[in-house]
């Protein structure tokens, strides 16, 4: 069963506990810059949204890897970096069109959300249930409505600024 993290941005308070939890369990440090989930501010909504790998069907990172160091965890469909195989060529970081594969400077190896083996720390850490562990098909559902709201408010604001309305 393919699973993924779904985001409910309206519930996000921007507390970045997901980033702290992720960096802790993935790298052993409390350092948001090493988190594999990243919270962004969206001014138009006066709100925040965490963003991370959808474990997408195409798996651009996996197909781009020259040494097959990214593979599917059959238990939940997560695309997982096999650190012992990763040579550090960075190709996956530019091949992923979602921008959710990173390089960890300490190891010079790729790092991405691996769903923590089925118990995502970010989900456990979120105090407002803004991140849910769901069936993969529904994980990207928030993009459309959230994107449209952010877009229309920005466009309207620009129109006001430019004196168009």
């Amino acid at each position: 069963m393919a699973q993924s993290l779904a985001i409910i941005p309206d519930r996000c308070t921007g507390c970045v506990q997901c980033e702290l939890a992720c960096s802790w369990v993935q790298t052993g440090t409390f350092q948001p810059s090493k988190s594999l989930i990243r919270v962004s501010v969206f001014d138009e909504e006066a709100s925040y949204a965490p963003y991370t790998c959808l474990q997408c069907d195409e798996a651009w990172c996996m197909t781009a890897c020259p040494v097959n160091a990214i593979a599917i965890d059959e238990s939940n469909g997560a695309k997982v970096v096999i650190e012992s195989l990763c040579v550090g060529c960075h190709l996956c970081t530019i091949a992923c069109p979602f921008g959710t594969v990173f390089t960890l400077p300490e190891t010079d190896k790729a790092a991405k959300c691996n769903l923590c083996g089925g118990e995502p720390a970010c989900v456990m850490a979120c105090p407002t249930d803004a991140i849910e562990f769901v069936e993969q098909e529904t994980a990207g559902n928030w993009f459309e409505s959230w994107g449209e709201r952010v877009n229309s408010k920005y466009v309207d604001a620009m129109a006001v600024e430019n004196g168009d309305s």
Binding site: G28, N68, D73, I82, S84
Partner: peptide, 21 residues
């Protein structure tokens, strides 16, 4: 995309997390 067919040393995809998890 299906799983790829070859991995050096037959390495298996296991989601690694720190002991902190």
């Amino acid at each position: 995309t299906r799983p790829r067919g070859y991995r050096f040393g037959n390495a298996q995809p296991v989601a690694r997390v720190n002991d902190a998890h």
